[in-house]
Nucleic acid binder design. Structure first.
Length: 419
DNA sequence: TCTGGGGTCCTAGGACCC
DNA sequence: TCTGGGGTCCTAGGACCC
């Protein structure tokens, strides 16, 4: 048995925990740069505002009725951790899947036992974190995903058996594109094969599906039949590459502004790299104009610079990023986004190995510097210490006009609640 | 004026080798 | 007239997820 625990309207729910006045009101949370709506309360959905809707396209009259908040990832990340803590205290094996969902491996559980546990999970998570969750139960992940959707529409807990008339009816009524793992492209190709609902996909010959589409789709067929075929990748496993990129607050053609934005991205990427204990072999810089810009004004390119030796030193990453930027930058375009990607990540030697290895004084100094930098920034707040000159008033900086306080990770901001 | 960010896996095709 | 066969590794691009 697999359970999928999914937080309801997660970002909005996080905001409501600390601002109960938002309860019952249409509330949305915006993407970075306050660009589009990425989370909606039920009340906001009822107003007809779509997932991903660009804010500037929402009619002003409608906009005045709702509360639209900038995203506050420090808060959501911490709340997500708390939810998983509760899950871990109740379930034998938890596999976090995204910031607001976790699969639970309930091998050996029967439907009744699983439902009882699911109800307890709902109650405990709600009581201990304030976040409402729904639980879907089924023999496989694809079916658990579906069960979760049903749970959201009532009751909060739902079990779906692989072999049951109700499951068949459900799958027959479900367009294939609404399945987890099937999006527009695959749906189109399935339609050509005469497969347009989830039941006909389930009845299809797996090898035929593999030939016509891919092994990924074949696994979905098996999952629909009740045979587990999808294994979760370990989210704790070190990443193979790592990307930090942001839209600029406003487009710019100025190389020095891109350079400044990039410097911040590289600093962030370096922190992430050291946190997972890896070294990067190369640095790639990506630059582009607005995606809606077409024709002569459009530009989208990247440049890769290989490091002399694999490194996790922000200064070396910066040097490479500077070269890459120079290679990719073209005058006369208004750039909307830039990013840095660290490639070819490999594990740095384990600390014990490092002790045994011959290390130059310079290497040791370098690592101490980076470790200190990370610690200061972790304990005293991001960007307390930075490489290069700080510029706080830059036009390229991210817009987030309406962000709530970081209640759970910053004492100073929590205390503001009572100020 | 204003449309997110960060990942994964799979596949096809090229380079290279014996 | 003829132009091997098969393997590995790497990369770019497609598709999908939240």
């Amino acid at each position: 048995m697999i359970a999928l625990v999914d937080c309801n309207n997660f970002y909005v729910s996080c905001e409501r925990v600390f601002a109960p006045a938002l309860e019952g009101r249409p509330v949305g949370v915006l993407s970075n740069n306050d660009g589009c709506v990425v989370a909606r309360s039920e009340e906001l959905k009822a107003l007809g505002i779509a997932m991903g809707a660009p804010v500037h396209l929402i009619p002003p009259a409608l906009r005045r009725q709702c509360t639209l908040l900038s995203s506050n990832y420090a808060l959501y990340g911490d709340m997500s951790r708390r939810v998983n803590e509760v899950l871990e205290s109740l379930a034998p094996a938890v596999e976090p899947y995204s910031i607001d969902e976790s699969f639970l491996d309930l091998s050996g559980f029967g439907p009744l036992e699983a439902e009882a546990l699911a109800r307890e999970i709902r109650e405990r998570v709600r009581r201990e974190t304030g976040i409402p969750v729904s639980v879907g139960l089924a023999p496989t992940r694809v079916l658990a995903k579906l069960a979760n959707r049903l749970a959201k529409h009532g009751g909060g807990v739902r079990y779906l058996a692989a072999q049951a008339p109700v499951t068949r009816a459900l799958l027959e009524a479900l367009p294939v594109a609404e399945l987890w793992g099937v999006a527009r492209r695959s749906a189109e190709r399935l339609t050509v094969l005469g497969i347009d609902n989830a039941w006909s996909l389930r009845q299809a010959e797996p090898t035929r599906i593999r030939r016509a589409l891919s092994v990924v789709m074949e696994r979905i067929v098996w999952e629909l039949r009740g045979h587990g075929a999808i294994v979760m990748d370990d989210l704790d496993a070190p990443r193979r590459h790592l990307l930090v990129s942001r839209s600029l607050g406003r487009p710019t053609a100025a190389a020095h502004e891109l350079h400044e934005a990039l410097r911040q991205h590289v600093a962030r990427a370096g922190e992430k790299l050291r946190r997972q204990g890896s070294l990067a072999q190369a640095v790639r810089v990506v630059l582009r104009t607005a995606p809606f810009q077409v024709g002569r004004g459009a530009y989208h390119s990247a440049a890769l610079v290989t490091l002399p030796t694999p490194s996790d030193d922000t200064r070396e990453l910066l040097r490479a990023a500077r070269q890459a930027l120079a290679a990719v930058y073209r005058e006369g375009y208004r750039y909307q986004k830039c990013g840095v990607m660290l490639m070819g990540l490999a594990e740095a030697g384990a600390p014990q190995e490092r002790l045994l290895a011959e290390e130059s004084a310079e290497t040791v100094r370098r690592r101490r510097l980076m470790a200190t930098l990370d610690r200061v920034n972790r304990e005293l707040g991001r960007d307390t210490v930075r490489l290069g000159l700080p510029r706080h008033d830059s036009g390229w900086a991210l817009r987030c006009a309406n962000r709530s306080d970081r209640y759970t990770t910053r004492w100073d901001e929590l205390l503001r609640v009572h100020a």
